[in-house]
Design a protein around this nucleic acid. Sequence first.
DNA 1: TCCTTTAGTTAGCAAATGCTAACTTTAAAA
DNA 2: TTTTAAAGTTAGCATTTGCTAACTAAAGGA
Lengths: 122, 122
Amino acid sequence: MDSRESAEMYLETIYILSQKSDAVRKIDVSRYMGYAKPSVTRAIGLLEKRGLVNVDDSGILKLSKEGEQQAKRIYERHTVLTKMFMNLGVDEETATEDACRIEHYISETTFDAIKKHMAKYE
Amino acid sequence: MDSRESAEMYLETIYILSQKSDAVRKIDVSRYMGYAKPSVTRAIGLLEKRGLVNVDDSGILKLSKEGEQQAKRIYERHTVLTKMFMNLGVDEETATEDACRIEHYISETTFDAIKKHMAKYE
DNA sequence: TCCTTTAGTTAGCAAATGCTAACTTTAAAA
DNA sequence: TTTTAAAGTTAGCATTTGCTAACTAAAGGA
């Protein structure tokens, strides 16, 4: 996996888990992503260094303002791409999987075009 | 870059260069991709081991049957995705760049759906 | 014939990610 | 209070890809 993709996946995961629970810890990320704990420890450490995530004394993860922006950006791509693929007749599971891989690699320009296009179908 | 993506890019490059010239060598791949020669030496060595590329005594690269199949598969994705993005109003350069990144990550199912969709516009 | 340019190779570095093993710490259970 | 289970951390391995440095080999020019 690409380095940027990896970071984005961690951010997105924290964002998604934060919507379901208000006390997200590393172990939750570990389980959700299916990665070993040390992988999560390091990855989140890097996100902290970059100022995208904060971990409080009790081990609760919070996205910073910028971290949340980035997470939302990816998550929006995720949902829009999934819809687009489903709109073309792809089943939900496959559409989600594809969106999840592609969301990291689409340029702003192309994503905007897709988003505008999809807006017609709402 | 992902390992599979890397291999696919080399195959696609050899395929593209083979359409312009019938004597493609490693140095050509090196220049086209902008990679140093040792990177190409190793990458093509791996493709040879996998039976996807053959290098004859004079250093000319040929895709094997399977190598060509894979290269064509990727190249088709490249062209179809580029068209789709341009169809949504994206400029050619951006469309090509995006297609080039995404072509490696789309499932067969989703690509088929896109392809069918694009067929309507021909 | 000798020299230079070009293609290709070998060896080894750096970066990044995921993993296991083993340890610490904390918190809950008995 | 003691024990046990769960969360995290540290250390270090493996894999993969691209790079540079330095070398070999072959082809062409002078």
